[in-house]
Write a protein that binds this DNA or RNA. Structure first.
Lengths: 234, 234
DNA sequence: GAGTGGTCTAGACCACTCT
DNA sequence: GAGTGGTCTAGACCACTCT
């Protein structure tokens, strides 16, 4: 049994993500949501305040709350969800799995993740495309010991990151950010010139101590920046 | 007249930042804070929940709330202290102030920081050198309205960032990370080839709502990476 | 068992701004 | 002027975990 505020929040996020509520769309007033969910105003107020603090909606007295316009600063340095970001920005998004295999983890990755060397990993390479422009190339390992159902997943509707996010709540994450010059292979994938500065984000996530996934995501430096806000939520 | 929850939050943050309450220190129970501030539990609960979401404290039923260990704090791309890092690594460190001036803030920076346009800022350009190799180039604005004593500081012993860190504890920070190709000027400063991918970290910090400083730090991409650990935000 | 925090209610007054 | 969100109160019940 989920908490009420989580259910309300999930419902609203789902509507924003699906595009049903696009940027500028007015969200129901607090008292409408009270009626809809049969709860007190404090509860819906907490949900909407949190969504506003996270930048998904903007609130104005008298005018109500609306789905936020996408900020010019795209990628957020929390757990990223390309589909959600694209939906918020009103951008056509698609992805393409370029590679898929199951392999025992190699020595270097075993050391990084703390897993035994023979652990089976699902290896995926995904290209993320928005408005026909490649925006990121993602190389991902998924621990099949922790997420065995990934083996049966075709990743037709959601890219691996989004799929994982919905299925496996994470408790810890480690990030490494570097800048690299694109080699010719990467440049071709991302449709940039060889040598273009790219942002490389490596993210490893654990769930209660169990390694879940490692992603290495390469962004063209001129198309993306990572933003982290460490300010009060209120 | 500030809001009550802001006053409580500022008080607690100030005690944590000053070191009066160090990591592991138990924070007063909610009902103690209710008595101290003469308010309802909802109000102190909101403050403590926000602080927990921001990683400043950890909360446990029955045991109460304690100041979080720095490693588990959410401030990922931590406030960096070149001198401290170099000392830890046993590396010779020096810095050189390449430029110093006092200028009214320009329109673009005023918008970023929320300051009035005519605010006087101390502008500093600093090169950070370790073992005779340039490791970072830093362009910094310091708000003289918040930190007037910076005007009199020669920055002989400590670089601006370290000096500020000791003098003005920060409560809020915003980070932006990008990748750029070094232009010829930057390449010369950092002793890399023109076009080398560099990591650019922009950091803006506030103390209890007052803007303190903005730093844009450029690192050669092959010499540096940023590492951070996260736990979920509520 | 007892005390803590997590969530929620059903109100209230106020500040803001114009659906 | 009226309706919205921002904040706050004084309760309540429950889940969790051991100061």
């Amino acid at each position: 049994m989920k908490h009420l505020h989580q259910r309300i929040r999930d419902d609203i996020e789902a509507r924003i993500m699906s595009g049903e509520w696009s940027p500028g769309h007015r969200i129901p007033y607090e008292h409408e949501l009270m009626t809809e969910y049969g709860c007190s105003r404090m509860t819906v107020n907490k949900v909407l305040s949190t969504l506003a603090a996270n930048g998904l909606i903007t609130r104005r007295r008298r005018a109500g709350s609306v789905v936020a316009e996408p900020s010019s600063q795209q990628a957020v340095l929390q757990i990223q969800d390309f589909a959600l970001e694209a939906a918020r920005a009103g951008i056509e998004y698609r992805f393409k799995i370029l590679h898929r295999s199951i392999e025992p983890i190699d020595a270097a990755a075993a050391q990084r993740t703390g897993l035994p060397v023979e652990t089976k990993m699902l290896c995926l390479s995904t290209l993320h495309v928005m408005d026909d422009v490649p925006q990121a190339f993602e190389q991902r390992l998924i621990n099949l010991a922790t997420v065995p159902e990934a083996d049966q997943e075709a990743f037709k509707d959601d890219p691996p990151g989004t799929w994982l996010l919905r299925r496996v709540p994470w408790t810890d994450a480690e990030h490494i950010v570097r800048a690299v010059n694109a080699d010719s292979t990467m440049a071709k994938r991302l449709q940039v010139q060889t040598g273009t500065a790219c942002l490389v984000l490596e993210r490893r996530t654990w769930q209660a101590g169990a390694f879940v996934t490692e992603a290495r995501i390469t962004y063209p430096g001129d198309r993306h920046q990572l933003v982290g806000r460490f300010s009060p939520v209120a």
